[in-house]
Write a protein that binds this DNA or RNA. Sequence first.
DNA 1: AAGACGGGGAC
DNA 2: GTCCCAGTCTT
Length: 234
Amino acid sequence: MGNSPPTPPDDITSKQIQTILAGWGKQHFRPFPWRTPLKEWHGLIAEILLQRTRAANVIPVYQIFIQRFPLPQQLGMASVEEIENIIRPLGLHWRAPLLKKLGQKLSENDGCVPHDEQALNSLPGVGAYVTAAFLSLHAGVRSIIIDSNIVRFVGRLSDCLVDGETRRKKWLIAYVEALTPLNDINVFNYALLDFTMEVCTTIPKCDICPLGERYCAYRKRNIAEKTPNECGII
DNA sequence: AAGACGGGGAC
DNA sequence: GTCCCAGTCTT
Ligand code: SF4
């Protein structure tokens, strides 16, 4: 028998982490173009373009994309070639034919994006992450989001090694579920995205982290071992 | 469960 | 040059 998987923090601790992250997020909210009030269609497109791609790199492609395809109908009628050319700087070109199918499928629904989890998840190019991100960030529906940055963050909180499969593990999902508040879902999820993008990064910036050793087992161990962290600052 | 996809920026 | 990024789809 190996080590048992990490268990989520208790309710009190989870709420404290939520409060700290939400407070941090309010002061460090990043106004990406897809975060300003927008059409749901544009929000869905943004989440797809953001797959495995740093947000800053998506900005110019997103602007061109929604200018060329303001409505799903226009995307559905475009050629795969044209779509592929527009998203080329982002790589993962297999998304081009899926985006065309997405436009066609939404056209059948009057161009409206469904708010049903099953319906979203079955759309071409839309998986667990895009479904949860769209619901929580663009439709006000509480959903937990799990991306590679958030997996890394949970790994740090619990001081557990993670890999590419960790995002599908039950313990990880339960952990994020416990951390995610019942209300103000978009505020918390934006904070979680920004925090994991800017503070709990591949090389963590523990010296500016609002959580620290009280909430982060990785940080606590580094301090206890009196080894310099990966920032090189105590 | 494991592999493929991908350009581009950070280091 | 290496690693990693708001994952998804296919064996
Ligand atoms: S203390 Fe460091 S490792 Fe822990 S959550 Fe903060 S930035 Fe991440």
